[in-house]
Design a protein around this nucleic acid. Sequence first.
DNA 1: CGTCGGATTGAAGATACTCAACATGAGTGG
DNA 2: CCACTCATGTTGAGTATCTTCAATCCGACG
Lengths: 277, 277
Amino acid sequence: VANPLTMKLEQFTAFSQEERQRLDQLLTYPIRTFKRGETIIREGQKVDNVHLVHTGLAARSKSLADGSRQFMALLIPGDLCDVEVFILEAMDHDIVAVSDTSCVLIPAKVMEELLTQSTSLTKAMWWSTMTDSAILREWIVDHGSRDATERLAHLFCEMLIRYRVVGETTDDSFPFPLTQEELADATGMTPVHVNRVLQHLRTEGLIDLKGRSMTILDPDALKRVAKFEAVYLHLIRTARRDPEVSGRAGDLVPASHKGMLSGALDKVKASFGNSQD
Amino acid sequence: VANPLTMKLEQFTAFSQEERQRLDQLLTYPIRTFKRGETIIREGQKVDNVHLVHTGLAARSKSLADGSRQFMALLIPGDLCDVEVFILEAMDHDIVAVSDTSCVLIPAKVMEELLTQSTSLTKAMWWSTMTDSAILREWIVDHGSRDATERLAHLFCEMLIRYRVVGETTDDSFPFPLTQEELADATGMTPVHVNRVLQHLRTEGLIDLKGRSMTILDPDALKRVAKFEAVYLHLIRTARRDPEVSGRAGDLVPASHKGMLSGALDKVKASFGNSQD
DNA sequence: CGTCGGATTGAAGATACTCAACATGAGTGG
DNA sequence: CCACTCATGTTGAGTATCTTCAATCCGACG
């Protein structure tokens, strides 16, 4: 099985043979599995292993006094749960398993070495955490400025790309273990309203969601509905270096952003359908 | 004038004389001023200086196609605008000046040295970025799970603490240059509704907002209204080491979280009124 | 076949939005 | 010094989106 973390980080830089090896060695550490619904890490907990999601889906979650629950991030294979560990006293939120999930438990020390030995790896890890922050910011935009339909559509667009990066898509389908209630927790809506908006997206022929699997039927249309701009995922560097990123043609970077890049962009290919804006 | 960055980072660790000096030297770099409303850094821009907010208030902002605007973070003195610089190709959002604002332009190279030479400083910077992420997550909770009143109240609680940390409070007052429209951009509400909720908070005797200055009249009550839990700001370490943090008595850490700390907590004092939960 | 989690549907109601008018107050120029 | 302007704050009325609370349906699984 491929290492999703390696795949993700290679969106940012190409690694040397040795670096790739070092990353792949991470998978030799003990794996712990969690049942759907289990808490992987609890708020207040002081962890001394870094949890790397290997299979399944997890979520950063906060539970409020009134019983409501809010997801702040979804963690797919290749995502780290708790880089905070090195610095902070304890977690300020929970990590919960949304589907049956397995995590590689990387000893903090090993992680620390990894972060200090190779500049390339260090930078790649930095990139990963900055991108995570960018996703958090985008979620704030979702919640603050997009209506229910846009919000769900935007989430699906984001997930399609992120899953594609770690090679878990087939065409425009990807695993989708979230119940409508969990989807509500992620988007700040009620389950009832999630249901209605989903039906709307279905009848519009945009998505096909059934049996824990999501298929984006019309990526471009969904992207338009969501007002989705992939720039915040920062998949650009690799795109420039390696046009074959994920096998599908398509210009990730909207024309208006081309100025962002220093070099020529003629061959930028990326992972979200053909874009024409 | 004191260095707000130093003050902030000292919430996390105590620095050596030399380290403090090094931080203070940052203020010798050129300062650039921005008028209220100006864009400090634009989306797509590739910056080669790190902007450190010195005076005033700035915001991370995204403008959507429909003309709406969403703030994702408020940057007060001591906050860095663009650590991304080292890694990412370009900014994925704007930084705008909410009031007249001055920034210290720290050459990327200098920053990089700072980040690699002293372990203590490196860790403190890490802490800062992790805390920033924690704030982003809390904003998602604000937008997703709190109603308008809670959301505003929560923001005010957060700002009180953050301003106190950098020494810009007098009692429970702090600078508040945001217009109601900008407050709406920050909270994902309409200006009209912001206005009404503000009036509500005023008549409840919780806040006194006038002339670009905010006074929290009843911190405990406001905290209760907001369901505010300061844990996510991660001001704990210092609290344990230095009971005098910011001069006011009060237990920052609710009893339910005391398990988080390894050591004894009898003398934890912090910056948000007396807490009894 | 019955149970249980999850999905779906209906109807009523609340929070927050839209649009539009009006008030206030600081600054500006005549 | 007053008239004007402009940005900000305030108020009202009608409305939309989304919520709440149920009830019902469906499919997987023992």
